[in-house]
């Protein structure tokens, strides 16, 4: 792996350089929330954050997006697909867990037979510059689900904060072409040693929080366990844990109409909402919290393993922190593991 180095104060120049060429999205502070947003200059960026409330998935998969419009209602022959003339996107300063989540979203939206053109139009030329976590939170459990505070999966470049400089780990060819183009120095031996220390310290500060060995088998065999009922009785069936999850991707497709125009829109949806699976006949295969929350956990830790060969949780801890009733997925998994 190539490693480059850049002084922190030079980052400004680099970022402004990138803004010339890319639509740059970076963590910014709005009121007291950190969110990922399009930036106009380096001044907007705030790298002092543990993680954003909303994950960056909306940059690829917005909460609502128009699939197409049609001229007059009922006129299927007048369909128009919106074309984006945007420059390629660059995500700057996202966390490694969120970068990993893109690989999962790719498996869903870039499936061979049904490629999702909307997702891919943003994804294809996208550049990801992640920043490793020197201070993981107590709620972070990336290391339990195959990631880590300096995991490079899903990133083109990975920044490591070593004090006055950032080491730039060059992960992909795309990333390599970018660093060659902007021209940054190679990292020296002593800086690399420093980087290793920083990484090691962060990794050591994290202890395993869920037992993943045999978890899938455990979950599969515990499907009918009544414990699901008591574990989930307090759930409010809100959208927080799914909307804020970087690897949740369920959606709905709806039509909206203005005076003369119809629009087909894709919006985020949630397996936690009772209406999600309510059939027209009135029957609902997931009528209560128990089935719905079980679905969320099973989907992430069993079904995705069957379908995509990996769990669809990156351990970011958002659902843990933001659930209004403290329904903690780590506790759910641990309880099931111990059955």
């Amino acid at each position: 792996m190539k490693t480059k180095i850049i002084r922190k104060q030079d980052m400004t120049g680099l970022l402004n350089n990138l803004i010339q060429e890319y639509e740059v999205f970076a963590p910014v502070k709005r009121d007291d929330l950190v969110i990922f947003d399009r930036i106009g200059s380096d001044k907007d960026v705030s790298l002092e954050y543990t993680n954003s409330i909303k994950p960056p998935k909306e940059i690829l998969f917005p909460q609502s997006e128009t699939l197409f419009t049609c001229g007059s209602i009922g006129d299927a022959a007048s369909i128009e697909v919106p074309v984006s003339e945007e420059r390629p996107r660059l995500l700057f300063g996202i966390r490694p867990c969120d970068a990993r989540s893109f690989l999962l979203l790719d498996k869903v939206f870039n499936e061979e037979n049904h490629r999702d053109v909307y997702y891919l139009s943003r994804r294809n030329d996208m550049m990801v510059i992640a920043i490793g976590c020197i201070k993981p939170r107590a709620t972070c459990f990336c290391t339990s689900v195959g990631g880590g505070p300096f995991s490079s999966q899903g990133s083109d470049l990975l920044l490591v904060d070593i004090g006055d400089d950032y080491i730039i780990q060059v992960i992909t060819d795309k990333g390599s072409r970018l660093v060659e183009k902007v021209g940054v120095a190679d990292a020296g031996e002593n800086k690399l040693a420093l980087m290793k220390m920083v990484i090691q310290e962060a990794e050591l500060s994290m202890s395993p929080q869920i037992k993943t060995d045999g978890l899938k088998e455990k979950l599969d065999s515990a499907f009918d366990d009544p414990i699901w009922g008591s574990l989930t009785e307090k759930c409010l069936s809100c959208g927080i844990c799914t909307y804020l999850c970087p690897s949740c991707y369920c959606f709905d497709i709806i039509d909206e109409v203005t005076d003369s125009k119809g629009e087909r829109i894709r919006i985020w949806d949630s397996c936690q909402f009772p209406l999600f699976t309510l059939q027209a006949s009135g029957s609902n295969p997931r009528p209560t919290n128990k089935e719905r929350h079980r679905q969320r956990v099973m989907h992430k830790f069993s079904y995705c393993v069957d379908n995509y060969g990996q769990v669809s949780c990156v351990g970011c801890g958002r659902c843990v922190i933001e659930c209004p009733v403290n329904l903690d997925i780590r506790q759910v998994l641990t309880t099931i593991s111990n059955r």
Binding site: F109, D269, Y303
Partner: peptide, 19 residues
């Protein structure tokens, strides 16, 4: 079988039985 469906492509997430 009949389930509630939307995308029909295995993406929108609502019609699964297990995996």
């Amino acid at each position: 079988l009949e389930m509630r469906m939307k995308c029909g492509l295995g993406k929108c997430g609502r019609c699964n039985i297990g995996s």
